[in-house]
Amino acid sequence: MNLVDISGLTVTFSQYEGQVQAVRGVNLHVAEGESVGIVGESGSGKSVTCMAVMRLLREPQARIAADRLELAGTDVLAADRRTLASLRGRAAAMIFQDPMTAFDPVFTIGHQIIETIRAHRRVSKPEARAEAADLLRRVEIKNAETVLGYYPHQLSGGMLQRAMIAMALSCRPKILFADEPTTALDVTIQAQILQLIKELQAEFGMGLVMVTHDLGVVAETVDRVVVMYGGKIMEQGPVEAIFDDPKHPYTRALLASMPGQIGGRRRLTEIKGASPNPANPPSGCPFHPRCSLADAGCARAMPAFDVLTPGREAACWRLQ
């Protein structure tokens, strides 16, 4: 069974400027215990895809349509509020970019972890508290008992992100969505948090969806990569294959533009132009205005996926 099963997902936001399609026909499958990285820039639709399958987008401003939108075997489009609430936090948990704003500032860390545990399981408060302390210890927070009594403002960003991970894991979810979990943190703390997530994923045997703009984070943490651009998937495949032999021009350009790969001060390979405006996306392949290989055909229609090897797909007219 797939933990995440998405086919033909489109998400449309109603805004002042009109209808904005943030996600345009995305298929995504995550198997049990699998780790998948969704890479893309702002506006690529990577976060919106995860928020849609968790049904965390504000509706009806966001309109979700899909042929199939399932989370741990439950159709989340058909699910009522109660079913959704019992899925979230229990079957599927999520951590976010900025740990400083992710906790309710007026309650203690302990209160917020305990309330998560008790929202899903019938355990007494002292039991939940003991579990919460164990969880904090597991994410390598020393003096866990003291930290339970702390308010969010008393902890650093790195500590808060650890506590956030502990809270997300409190009901042993089958899948964890991590939306840019290290972007707001210092370099050394980033590496620590990524390593922690990797360890816990293996230990708990959970699925992991790592949403990031940082190819380095992907190289460090996941088995499979999905590259998104302009609300569509450009390429996906096993992480080694993507890094060794990128097929899609966008993936190639992205890898080539990574700074610091070779020693010495030098000009970098840049991708000309700017990311597409979601309110007015380019016709055909969204990358064609910036693509060095594009021809007239690329502007006409979005190409279908070429299955290169099983599990390895790219959507580009120039692949043939």
Partner: peptide, 10 residues
């Protein structure tokens, strides 16, 4: 959003 993602009731 985090509270919703934790599965608390509205």
């Amino acid at each position: 959003t985090v509270l919703r993602a934790k599965g608390l009731s509205e």
